[in-house]
């Protein structure tokens, strides 16, 4: 029985999907930071989280997702406030005063009170490309929550509202169980907020 007829196989990587998930997490992080400032409903929702609270969104086996290749070259001030996407994690920090800041994608030196973990890159791809709504994804076990459950529910609720802001109705209708009616969110408020969030997310934030 010669065993090298059955070689050991080290699985490869799906670069394209990694890159897509990295960018989406970066956009969501930045958008949440801006939305917390701009929209009162999001602010009320995120107010429920305690102060000095870090929240992380990542994809399972942490070691399998190193930072992007150009991450080392970026100067420190870019990585601190996450001007550019450079990793497949998202860190939100609520400091003592209570405002939310996106603090980049590098896990070094950060301790997460609550982490929302996608079970695999494929699952992250399904959720972040809106093939499954957030609720169905949770039911199908696409992502798992580490830390106490109520905080994650508020975070998911905030995420839903931001998605409504960011994406046109066709796409965000897939992600959210119930698309807000006219009464709750006037057309003007939605479009205006969308433009503001986009601009600020990609610039100063």
């Amino acid at each position: 029985m010669n065993i090298n007829k059955y070689p050991e196989i080290v699985p490869g990587r799906k670069f394209l999907k990694e890159f897509y998930v990295g960018i989406m997490l970066w956009v969501v992080g930045r958008a949440l930071q801006v939305a917390a400032k701009v929209d009162k409903e999001v602010k009320a929702e995120l107010a429920k989280l305690p102060n000095n609270f870090t929240l992380r969104m990542m994809v399972a086996p942490e070691k399998a997702f190193p930072l992007f290749f150009y991450a080392k070259l970026l100067p420190s001030f870019v990585t601190d406030i996450g001007l550019l996407p450079y990793g497949i994690q998202m860190f939100l920090h609520k400091d003592k005063e209570g405002n939310i800041k996106y603090i980049g994608a590098d896990p070094k030196g950060k301790k997460a009170d609550l982490s929302v973990i996608f079970t695999s890159i494929e699952a992250a791809w399904l959720v972040l490309s809106f093939q499954e709504s957030t609720a169905t994804a949770y039911m199908h076990g696409r992502f798992v929550v580490e830390g106490d459950l109520p905080h994650s529910l508020t975070f998911v609720r905030a995420l839903d509202i931001v998605e409504v802001f960011l994406l046109p109705k066709i796409i965000s209708g897939l992600a959210v169980k119930r698309y807000p009616k006219w009464s709750e969110m006037s057309l003007m408020r939605k479009f205006w907020k969308r433009i503001v969030i986009y601009i600020r997310a990609f610039t100063i934030g």
Partner: peptide
């Protein structure tokens, strides 16, 4: 009621 996990699996929001 918002703090309980069971609300995720209800068909209607």
């Amino acid at each position: 009621m918002m703090l309980d996990g069971a609300r995720m699996s209800n068909p209607e929001e």
